[in-house]
Amino acid sequence: MKKLRNTRLIISTGFFLSVVALGVVGPWVYPVDPFSPSGKRTQPPSWEHPLGTDAHGRDVLAQLMHGIRTSLWIGVIAASIATPIGVLVGGISGYKRGVLDELLMASTNIVLAFPPILLLLLVTVFVPVRTRMVVALLIGLTSWPLLARAVRSQVMSLKERQFTFLARMAGLGDIKIVLVELLPNMMSYVFSSFVWLMSGAMLAEAGLSMIGMGVTADVSLGTMLFWAQMIDAVRRGLFWWFIPPGGILTIMSASLLLLATALDELFNPKLRGR
């Protein structure tokens, strides 16, 4: 059993890091401009262009490397925004209970009830120029509810443990109990949540970009798919153009999710099954 967990951890980390390497180191090894034409239009893969060119003659591999950077950047920032919100809302809700809990959970459930893509679209419609930061912010602000719910139930169970009672008897204030006693017990969970939020944020970004509502004036993996769809790459059989971005996206997102579940099992022996 122990061996299995480690292999899953190693495999998922390995996949993720190799994609990261492609995005970070790639552009140095393969310095081709992703934004301007560097060859003939819609060329299949060749020695000169390992992944061919798109309908404007731009190099697909160079775009892919750049797109990985954009997706990663947005994933990290969005998760960094969503994680504290989720922990805060869930923490207050679970610790204080009462009317405040009801209100916070009601608003959490409201946000949760809507398809994230609709919430995002509703706002992006009114933001004509969308930088990476704007998109990351929007995704971060809409993706915290699931985490909040999970943190709430964790806090509710931790609150009933003996060490919390002892801390209260010792005269510690609420804030100190939450920060010193409860939070350290949830750190592992919060960390793995960060990982799956990142995985979800990258998919959300791609979903927005795929309909032309993502980052403007930049290349992400989703934008590549959007361009390919606009030019009807599927029906024209330009497989080298639309297969790589989605494949890379799947590998990144899935390896992060696998990593999150492997971390969960590593930190929490109860989840290991028998």
Binding site: L203, A206, F242, G246, G247, T250
Partner: peptide
């Protein structure tokens, strides 16, 4: 984790 849109393509 496969994006719907890409899988459709």
């Amino acid at each position: 984790r496969i994006p719907f849109y890409w899988f459709a393509m």
